[in-house]
C-alpha cells in the first residue's frame, strides 16, 4: 500500500518482461521441436526427389548391376497389406470400441481396455515374432495374409481406444432420446451413437493406417518381401518399408538412391493421410455444438 507510483510501474514492467521471456522460451522450444521434422522432410526431398520418376512407380526392381527399375510391386504391396489389415482390424477395433464405451465399468471391459493399452506399447517387432510363431509357422510360410494379420494386430488396439474415446464424447442425451423413441439398445448404439461418432472413429482409423503403413519390423518375418509381383495372398509380398530397408543397407549406389525415393514416397503417403484427417475433422466443432 505504500508503494509509490513509479514502483508500481516498475513492477508492471518487470511482470511484462517476465511474461515476454517465458513466451519467448516456449516459442523457441516449439521451433526446436519442429527442426527435426523439417530436416527430415528437407533431407528426404533433396535425396529422394531426383529418383522419383514415372518408372519408379511403374517398373519392377532391376536386377543387381542394372540401373533403372522401380518399386511398383512394393507400392502395390504396401496398399495391399494395409488394405487387408484394415479389412481385418477395423471391424474388430470399432466393435471392441463400441463394447468398451457401452460397458464402461464391466470387469471384461476393464480387462480389454487394459490389454489394449498394453498392446499399444508392445514393440512392433514382437508382434512380428508373434505372428511368425502363430501364423507363418503353422500355415506353411511367409504370406501377404500373415503380414496383414501382423499389421492388423497393431491396428486393433489403436482403433479400439480411439473408437471408445470418440463414442464417449457423444452426449448421453442423444442415446436417451433414441431409447425413448422405442429404439432397441443395439440399434441406438449403432445408428445413433456410433454414427454420430463416425468422423472421429474414421480419424482414428486413418491415424492407425498411417502408423502401420510405416511399419517394417512386423513384416520382416511375415510378409517377408518379394522381388516380383505377388499373385496370391498366400505368397510373400513386398512393401515400401521392406524395400527401402533392403535397398538402404545394400552396397549399390543405385539401390541406395531408390531407397531414398521409396522413403520419400512413403512419407508423402503418410503425410497425405494425416492431412486427410485434418480435412475430415475440420467440421467437428460444428457437430459438437
Amino acid at each position: 500500500m505504500t508503494l509509490t507510483k513509479s514502483a508500481h510501474s516498475r513492477r508492471q514492467l518487470f511482470r511484462k518482461l517476465k511474461s515476454d521471456v517465458m513466451v519467448g522460451l516456449t516459442v523457441l522450444a516449439t521451433a526446436l521441436a519442429l527442426v527435426p521434422l523439417f530436416l527430415v522432410l528437407g533431407y528426404l526431398v533433396s535425396k529422394g526427389a531426383t529418383s522419383v520418376n514415372w518408372s519408379f512407380f511403374t517398373r519392377m526392381p532391376a536386377p543387381v548391376g542394372q540401373s533403372g527399375g522401380g518399386m511398383a510391386n512394393a507400392i502395390v504391396g504396401t496398399f495391399e497389406l494395409v488394405g487387408l489389415a484394415c479389412a481385418l482390424g477395423v471391424p474388430i477395433g470399432v466393435a471392441a470400441g463400441i463394447y468398451l464405451a457401452e460397458n464402461r465399468g464391466g470387469a471384461l471391459a476393464q480387462a480389454i481396455r487394459f490389454s489394449a493399452d498394453v498392446m499399444m506399447g508392445v514393440p512392433s517387432i514382437v508382434v512380428g515374432i508373434f505372428c511368425y510363431a502363430t501364423v507363418v509357422r503353422p500355415f506353411g510360410g511367409f504370406s501377404t495374409l500373415a503380414g496383414a494379420i501382423a499389421l492388423a494386430v497393431i491396428m486393433v488396439p489403436l482403433v479400439t481406444r480411439t473408437a471408445e474415446e470418440m463414442i464417449l464424447l457423444v452426449p448421453h442425451e442423444l442415446r436417451e432420446a433414441a431409447l425413448a423413441l422405442g429404439v432397441p439398445r443395439w440399434r441406438t448404439s449403432l445408428l445413433i451413437v456410433a454414427r454420430t461418432a463416425a468422423s472421429g472413429i474414421a480419424t482414428g482409423v486413418i491415424l492407425a493406417i498411417a502408423r502401420v503403413a510405416g511399419e517394417t519390423a512386423p513384416l520382416l518375418f511375415t510378409a517377408f518381401g518379394n522381388r516380383f509381383w505377388s499373385t496370391s495372398l498366400l505368397q510373400p509380398i513386398s512393401s515400401l518399408t521392406m524395400q527401402v530397408y533392403t535397398y538402404a543397407i545394400s552396397p549399390f549406389a543405385d539401390w541406395q538412391r531408390q531407397a531414398w525415393a521409396g522413403a520419400l514416397v512413403l512419407t508423402a503417403i503418410v503425410l497425405a493421410l494425416e492431412i486427410g484427417v485434418r480435412w475430415l475433422t475440420r467440421g467437428d466443432a460444428q457437430v459438437a455444438r
Partner: peptide, 23 residues
Amino acid sequence: FQKPTPFPTMSIEDNVAAGLKLN
C-alpha cells in the same frame, strides 16, 4: 427431454422420421 436433442447427423425430416427409420 429438458435439452433439445435433435440427432446431429440427420436432417429435419429424418429427425422426425427417426422413430420409424431407426426401428
